[in-house]
């Protein structure tokens, strides 16, 4: 069951300190388990205790029904493999801890960009001194999104487009849509 649980993000909320979360989800009885989809919408709940042999199939079922592909990958190689397999452009979001990166990430969270996450495979790359991807793609000043063709021999050598920071969501969307049009797998 531990392995099945790892397909979900798990949070233990106790009634001392977690009262706001109890209120938000209108939970009045304990123990209660709520299942939410990746966008935070409640999809199932039960009150009481279930033995592992009953809980495990439930965890698998929720994961199968409501889990989806990552919006942002964390691993470059994993994202590259998926982009190749699905014949989609690869977008590397280079960021650091500064406010400009925080603002850019917020703009990327805009709902108007939602469908682009279906058409482009995104990976987050934190720019540090030893960041191999930042060196490879010649990025020194985050935040920036570099859109690359994953099927080319060296995706880094000829990026489709670079979308620099300080842009509104609508401008990022326009630039990414242009990159999509120019992408030829």
């Amino acid at each position: 069951m531990v392995k099945a649980s790892e397909s979900l993000i798990r949070v233990l909320v106790d009634n001392k300190g977690g009262e706001e979360i109890f209120d938000k989800h209108k939970v009045e009885r304990m123990p209660t388990i709520l299942f939410l989809d990746p966008d935070g919408k409640k999809v199932d709940e039960f009150v009481g205790v279930k033995p592992p042999e009953e809980l495990e199939p439930l965890l698998k079922s929720v994961t199968e029904k409501f889990g989806r592909k990552p919006r942002f990958h964390k691993e470059y190689d994993q994202a590259l493999d998926r982009a190749k397999a699905e014949s989609k452009p690869l977008a590397l979001f280079f960021f650091d801890a500064k406010q400009a990166s925080v603002d850019y990430a917020k703009a990327l969270d805009d709902k108007s960009l939602e469908e682009l996450f279906e058409k482009i495979v995104f990976v987050k790359v934190e720019v540090k001194k030893d960041s191999a991807e930042a060196k490879r793609y010649g990025v020194t000043a985050p935040p920036v999104i570099v859109v690359a063709n994953p099927t080319s021999e060296k995706p880094e050598s000829n990026p489709i487009r670079k979308v620099y920071g300080k842009k509104a969501a609508k401008d990022i969307k326009r630039d990414l849509e242009e990159a999509l049009k120019r992408f030829k797998p």
């Binding site: 649980s5 397909s7 979900l8 993000i9 798990r10 949070v11 233990l12 909320v13 106790d14 009634n15 001392k16 300190g17 977690g18 979360i21 109890f22 989800h25 939970v27 304990m30 123990p31 209660t32 388990i33 709520l34 299942f35 939410l36 989809d37 990746p38 966008d39 935070g40 999809v43 965890l59 929720v62 994961t63 409501f66 889990g67 989806r68 592909k69 990552p70 919006r71 942002f72 987050k124």
Partner: peptide, 16 residues
């Protein structure tokens, strides 16, 4: 993390 990873969430509400 759920939104970015695509994983559903399991919230367990219990007494302290």
């Amino acid at each position: 993390e759920a939104r970015e990873s695509g994983k559903p969430l399991m919230l367990y509400f219990t007494a302290d």
